[in-house]
Design a protein around this nucleic acid. Structure first.
Length: 115
DNA sequence: GCCATGGCTAGTA
DNA sequence: GCCATGGCTAGTA
């Protein structure tokens, strides 16, 4: 951080913006999931899946931003700030079928972002 | 240097 | 389950 950047999300930043990630997440309806890579791609950073994970780890507001609807590309549910158990419970409550930590019918459960 | 990834492989059931 | 990779960021100079 320096005098040219008021924050890491400054308009002078060239990278992925936290705000854009959070905004996009609010579009995923209950019962659907997206992958870290999907989010990155939809925002124009096709190789930034790990950066998305780090942004979600900062977990701004779990009430309005459904971080729990973001999973790994192989269907594993991935991590969660409040523990994987909690993530599973939330996803199941929303109607997703899980087998251990894997999303059943993964393809059918994926949300497609508008292009 | 880290890591809430991803994808490929070995090894079990 | 392992490891290669990308991209962020803490922390030094």
């Amino acid at each position: 951080m320096n005098r040219h950047n008021i924050s890491s999300n400054s308009v002078f930043d060239t990278g992925l913006k936290d705000r854009d990630v959070y905004d996009l997440l609010t579009k995923i309806p209950p019962g659907k999931v997206a992958t870290y890579g999907d989010i990155a791609k939809a925002l124009g950073y096709p190789t930034s899946s790990r950066a998305v994970g780090k942004i979600l780890a900062k977990n701004p507001n779990p009430i309005v931003v459904p971080c729990h609807r973001v999973v790994k590309s192989n269907g594993h549910i991935g991590g969660y700030a409040y523990g994987e158990k909690r993530k599973k419970d939330l996803l199941e409550k929303e109607g997703l079928q899980l087998e251990n930590s894997l999303v059943k019918n993964f393809n059918e459960s994926r949300f497609e972002f508008a292009k």
